[in-house]
Design a protein around this nucleic acid. Sequence first.
DNA 1: GATGCATATGAGAACGATTCCATAGCCACT
DNA 2: AGTGGCTATGGAATCGTTCTCATATGCATC
Lengths: 327, 327
Amino acid sequence: MNINEIAKRAGVSRATVSRYLNDGYVSQEKRTRISRIIEETGYVPSSQAQQLRNGKTHLVGVIIPKINSQSVSRMVEGVTSKLAEHGYQVLLANTENDESKEIEYLRILNQGDRVDGIILLGTVFNEAHEKVIRRLRVPFVVLDQHFEGHACIYQDDYHAVRDLTQLALSTARKPAYIGVFEEDRAVGVMRRQGFLDACAQVGIDVLPEAMQFASFTSDSGYFAAEKILEHVPDVDTIVCATDEMAFGAIMYMREYGKRVPEDVQVTGVGDSPMSRIIIPALSTVHLPFKTSGIKAAEMLLRQISFPNENPVSICMPYEVYQRNSLR
Amino acid sequence: MNINEIAKRAGVSRATVSRYLNDGYVSQEKRTRISRIIEETGYVPSSQAQQLRNGKTHLVGVIIPKINSQSVSRMVEGVTSKLAEHGYQVLLANTENDESKEIEYLRILNQGDRVDGIILLGTVFNEAHEKVIRRLRVPFVVLDQHFEGHACIYQDDYHAVRDLTQLALSTARKPAYIGVFEEDRAVGVMRRQGFLDACAQVGIDVLPEAMQFASFTSDSGYFAAEKILEHVPDVDTIVCATDEMAFGAIMYMREYGKRVPEDVQVTGVGDSPMSRIIIPALSTVHLPFKTSGIKAAEMLLRQISFPNENPVSICMPYEVYQRNSLR
DNA sequence: GATGCATATGAGAACGATTCCATAGCCACT
DNA sequence: AGTGGCTATGGAATCGTTCTCATATGCATC
């Protein structure tokens, strides 16, 4: 059932049916005739043919490192809701934390005009990324990372952790840090720098052994906390780059016989739902993940409508939540 | 840059270029000529034209109630990974728990051959669903619900909760239940029935006041627990239909001065990452969400390849995890 | 009564691929 | 010499739209 068939049955030309479907001069008489036939047959225009003809897919590719994460899923939620408002749909590409897949998906999505735009919820940026991104033929927005020279929406990771650390240090003197690998600029570099600068401000030198790496999971946070206690037994504050890792740290403290927050304070980042639930409730920073997703979608839609405008960057606000894991 | 341009520059016909790209007789000489031109120009065939011509989009629509949930995101993860293996991509439709959007998205995805298949990660099923689904022109799989007459992958909700309840009742006599609305057959009806049957088996009558409703969140679990204690002060076990709600129940117990598990046992369903982390560790049932997603994708791919085969249903296995929230 | 404008319609050319068909050379059998 | 099977190639049809053009009618305007 295609437009030709409809035209034939309604006794008009295919052009008239097309005009009826879109907007154009069609007499009332033919209008009703066509309308009846379409009703009867349940005809729907082929979106593939429309895409070919119009050069628009109304699809946006969204590349994510992993879906099974509070922050990512909330950002995707924001993106999909805003895009849906404007009749766009999301093509989801999950890299499963595989950096090379990120590049591969950028290529695939860029190929053959599959999508009208791309949102990259990235973690790592290197020359390979830069190279592929330069070749993109569709509007492009980076979400959750600050990537110079490209449109992006990012969190104020540095100030968020600096403020939180300052708060923690008002009642402590021996801080430690659990972070992530530095290839992730936002979480790995900026948050750590916020911690270090807050320490420096009050004249505290942080030993290298007090700076441990973990990998986003609570298990890895658990083991990082173990290492910290091993090297810095009198630690009184552990600042963690994510809530999940903080959960692991709290768990280890408890097993080790340290009380939180009396003996050791613990903080996270992200204000995940669980941060309110656990005992003690985790002090953390609220980051507007869903709103970031919405903003990214808005920015992309704007680029699609006005391709010649210069891309801008937006740093999102944050809010420090003091809860029971701080004295 | 299209296939005609490539053909012209390589001095061959467009048919030969197409044969080069796909598979067909092309002499070694022209092969290298075409290859060089494609390399130079960075040409990639238009997927829109291919879709129109071949009648295949290599896209699968996945409709979900909400993305920001452990179980859903893990199932989506499974689906995307398996589909990616076979060169398919996912068109994500998030209904944000809005039942009418579920119908709307089924319609949209069915229209104009946008996708090669649909996976519905549904919650509710009514006549409206049945009607739209009957009209679907593409292969279709229901995930996480048992929907008679359609291909589906579902959890063994009934036996999972029955087994867990039996375990809990080996050391208790006064059980209560926190469930969800019955429109959700899997979580609302089957899990509750598993609980009730386990109680009946050991001759325990459950009072209506001991059966409370909540809405998947820990907050709602908290308030449901409050109501239970109000009506059944000597309750010694609270079986919850989800982990999240169990977290809320534990939180209320703690604030109320009840010890878990000494005074009141609490169980959940889902084995969410946090269920291991909280104190006491939550006894729960592991459900293979990611594997379910993979199976659903496999089933859909099979239907796409063999449209005439009869759809089947698969009930997934489960595993009861006894942790510290049970005596 | 010539001109201009709004309304109305259909023919046909795109959009960019794939594939059927015809043709043709070459080699190997009978 | 005739037949059949590979390899190789280009022409043309096809997928289902949209949109430009050309054409036509009715009506108001100068």
